Lab assay of single mutants.
Amino acid sequence: SRHTFEINGERWTVEGVSEELKEILRAAERASNDEAERLLRLALKLI
């Protein structure tokens, strides 16, 4: 499935992501810059 999210003013669209990964991306959208970066690094390990 496709998911579009915005982090630090940048929009991203990813396809074929699991519900778990979507949850991480949604958390990154709400997080501070440092926390968002940490969550994105974690998410990339899952891809």
Rank of each mutant, 00 (worst) to 15 (best):
S18D: 08
L46Q: 06
K22S: 08
I47K: 02
E37H: 10
L46G: 04
F5I: 06
H3P: 04
D34H: 12
L42R: 05
R26K: 11
L40C: 05
A36Y: 06
A28Y: 08
L44P: 00
E35N: 04
R2C: 15
A43M: 05
A36L: 11
A31P: 01
R30Q: 12
E23L: 13
R26H: 13
R11S: 13
A28W: 09
V14G: 02
E20Q: 11
R26F: 12
R41H: 09
E15I: 15
E23G: 10
E19S: 08
E35Y: 05
L42W: 11
R41Q: 10
K45G: 10
G16T: 09
G9M: 03
E6R: 04
E15T: 12
A36W: 06
E35A: 06
T4I: 12
G16Y: 13
E23Q: 12
S32A: 10
L40W: 08
S18V: 04
A27N: 09
A43F: 15
K22R: 14
E35K: 05
E37L: 14
A31D: 02
N33I: 12
N8E: 04
H3L: 15
R30L: 14
S1R: 11
A28E: 01
A31W: 03
L25R: 00
I24V: 07
A31Q: 04
V14H: 02
L44V: 07
R30E: 11
S1E: 14
N33Y: 15
E29T: 08
R26Y: 11
D34K: 11
W12V: 09
F5N: 01
N8D: 08
L39N: 00
E6C: 15
S1Y: 08
I47F: 09
I7Y: 04
F5T: 01
R2S: 14
L46M: 14
W12N: 00
S18Y: 05
G9R: 01
I24H: 02
R11Y: 14
S1D: 14
T4P: 03
T13I: 13
E6P: 02
R41P: 00
R2Q: 13
G16K: 06
L40Q: 01
E29N: 04
A43H: 02
N8F: 09
I24D: 00
H3A: 09
A36F: 06
E6A: 02
V14L: 10
L44D: 01
H3W: 15
T13F: 09
R41A: 11
W12I: 13
F5Y: 09
I7D: 01
R30N: 12
L21W: 04
R2I: 14
N8I: 04
A28I: 07
L39I: 05
A36I: 06
I47E: 01
A31V: 06
L42I: 10
A27E: 09
R2N: 10
V17M: 07
E29Q: 08
R30S: 11
R30T: 11
T13K: 03
K45Y: 14
E10I: 15
W12Q: 01
N8K: 05
R26I: 10
R38D: 06
V17S: 05
A43G: 02
E23D: 13
E20D: 10
A27T: 08
A27K: 12
L25Q: 00
E15N: 07
N8C: 13
A43V: 14
T4H: 11
E10F: 11
N33H: 15
R30P: 02
L46R: 05
S32C: 08
L44E: 03
S1W: 10
L40N: 01
A27C: 10
I47T: 03
W12C: 05
A43Q: 00
E35G: 03
A43Y: 10
R2P: 09
T13Y: 10
R38C: 11
G16Q: 07
D34G: 14
A36M: 09
S18W: 08
R26S: 12
A43W: 05
N33S: 15
L25D: 00
L46K: 06
L42S: 03
W12Y: 14
S32P: 15
W12R: 00
L40F: 08
K45T: 12
D34N: 10
L40T: 02
S32M: 08
A43K: 01
V17P: 13
I47W: 07
E6I: 15
S18R: 04
R41F: 08
L44G: 02
E29Y: 05
A27R: 14
H3Y: 15
A43C: 07
I47P: 01
F5H: 02
L39S: 00
D34I: 12
E35D: 08
A43T: 02
E15W: 15
W12D: 00
L39D: 00
L46H: 06
G9N: 03
R2M: 09
E6Q: 07
E15R: 04
E37Y: 13
A43R: 01
A28L: 11
R38Y: 11
E20P: 06
E15G: 05
V14S: 02
L25H: 00
R11D: 03
H3M: 14
V17D: 06
A27G: 05
L40K: 04
V14I: 13
A31T: 05
K22A: 13
R2Y: 14
